[in-house]
Amino acid sequence: MSDKTTPPVLELANVTKTYQVKQGLFSAPRPLHALGGVSLRIHKKDVLGLVGESGCGKSTLAKVLLGLEVPTSGKVLVDGKEITPRERKLQARRIQPIFQDPYSSLNPRKSIEDIIALPLVAHRIGDAASRAGSVRRMLDLVGLPQRVLKGYPNQLSGGQRQRVAIARALVMNPEIVICDEPTSALDVSVQSQILNLLGDLREELGLTYLFISHNLAVVEHLATRVAVMYLGRVVEEAPAAELFAGPRHPYTQALLESVLTPDPNLSVPDTHLGASYPNPIAPPPGCHFHPRCAQVRDICKTTPPPHVAGPQGHVDCHLHAAPAR
């Protein structure tokens, strides 16, 4: 899986993204740190699962990787080389997105053929004939019949639309695909088809995924590594099997406790999570998670947690002051 001798295909080095937001009509804008210094490495053919509550910064991170947002500070590296703003077009070719909502992410007035060919047209790749050939190959690849080519999104089911979105992402021959909640809007019987397809495509094409999902069972199924975000920071990152077998950060533990496996002998778990998600404009001092943490100590209320890195991953928490992993 992760080959440590080659540089990661994708790396975020201490990336921050700050938005200026106004809370009221007359108040001055205040900074919202959507990403508060994120460092992540994704190796070839890895599936990095990214989890955390809504508002923690997952989509912002995806947009930075896609070049759709410029980081406030920090670096994005592809194959160990920093991507400058001038090279964003190159970045866009190698990194393609699949978004959550197959209904709103496809232009309703464009035919399926035009939708899938659009990235090629935008990047001036090939001529009409070669583009048509690529589109037809993509349909086969994602399991759509050729007859949908001249049709429109509203003639397709949710699952078929998501296949179109996948075809559009893959037509550029990307190395990395950013999947932001790709199956959240789909019924379970359709979700499983799309997950199987994503798994097959990774094998066939040697793809690398960043896979954002709120469904931890799905992440456990697909991911090779998992990063857990809380309020703009990655608080734990580890190989998937290790993280699910032994979550170290109290927030990761609470997230895993919230997973409702279909076992009729169990009841709804107590997540030991107190208060609700904090206001990102005024995050709690010390460890941002401390008001909800079941294992909070005095030091957590005043002092930011240490970044405890080991060979396999990291955890940001006062409980883990010495590296073990």
Partner: peptide, 25 residues
């Protein structure tokens, strides 16, 4: 039965293996 096979169940489904599916609409 088909529905139950479609969802990954931690500890039961082998990570990465094909999930069950219900073809068609």
């Amino acid at each position: 039965r088909g529905l139950l096979r479609c969802i990954p169940v931690p500890g039961k489904t082998k990570p990465g293996e094909h999930l069950g599916s219900i073809p068609g609409i």
